[in-house]
Amino acid sequence: MLPTESRSTLRKYFRQQRNALSNAQQQLASVQLLKQCKSLGIYQQAKTIACYLAQDGELSLTPLIEDAWHRGKDVCLPVLHPFAKGYLLFVRYHPNSTLQANRFGIPEPVINLPDIIPLEEVNLIFAPLVAFDEQSRRLGMGGGFYDRTLAPVLKNALETHICGVAHDCQKVETGLKSDRWDIPMQQIITPSKIYRAS
């Protein structure tokens, strides 16, 4: 699969690739991903991390979330912003959080004002993706939610660290084309390797 293919074609192909993984492969990938993340100083030092709940074959962060709780870190999840269309809020997630499905069918915490965590207070964000390349460029689902929400990280030079998360099979062998609004990842983390932005 070449990056010269349309983005919609790439998305379809790599979604099929990750959905073709067996439950055993998915579970092993989650454990291996946790090992990779535990080797990162930024993860060890982070007090607040943003994760996601896996859907559509995405690499599950459940072991990572449980490890973060065990270490006393605050964990938050992306929630569709109720007033700003196309944007996300980060809402604190704990073992007793009440979840509800959003309009895409994705579970997210019910919004309570004290649980909303401002972007500038999130030290590390683990972002899902559909495909990536060696230069840590990320191809998302096409909605632009992360790009719009994370734009202040660049604009305001926030210290928030952004890592893409993917299965190894989601790697494009040659470079992906970037649009000017695409938010770069500092790293892409897979079960077998950490790719750093050049």
Rank of each mutant, 00 (worst) to 15 (best):
G41N: 14
Y43L: 14
Q44W: 00
Q44I: 03
Q45T: 11
A46S: 15
A46P: 07
K47P: 00
T48L: 03
A50M: 13
A54N: 14
S60Y: 02
L61T: 12
T62M: 13
P63D: 03
P63C: 03
I65W: 01
E66N: 14
A68I: 04
K73M: 03
D74M: 13
V75D: 03
V75P: 03
V75C: 12
C76R: 02
L77Q: 03
V79P: 04
L80N: 07
P82Y: 04
A84F: 07
K85M: 09
G86W: 06
Y87K: 15
V91S: 07
Y93H: 13
H94M: 01
P95T: 04
P95A: 08
P95M: 10
P95H: 07
P95S: 07
N96A: 14
N96W: 00
N96G: 00
N102Y: 02
F104H: 13
G105A: 11
P109C: 11
P114R: 10
I117N: 08
I117T: 11
I117F: 09
E120L: 01
N123C: 09
N123V: 00
I125A: 04
F126C: 13
F126Q: 11
A127K: 11
R138D: 08
M141Y: 15
M141I: 04
G142W: 04
G144T: 06
Y146N: 07
V153A: 10
A157S: 15
L158K: 07
T160V: 08
I162Y: 02
C163K: 00
C163E: 01
C169Y: 01
Q170K: 06
Q170D: 07
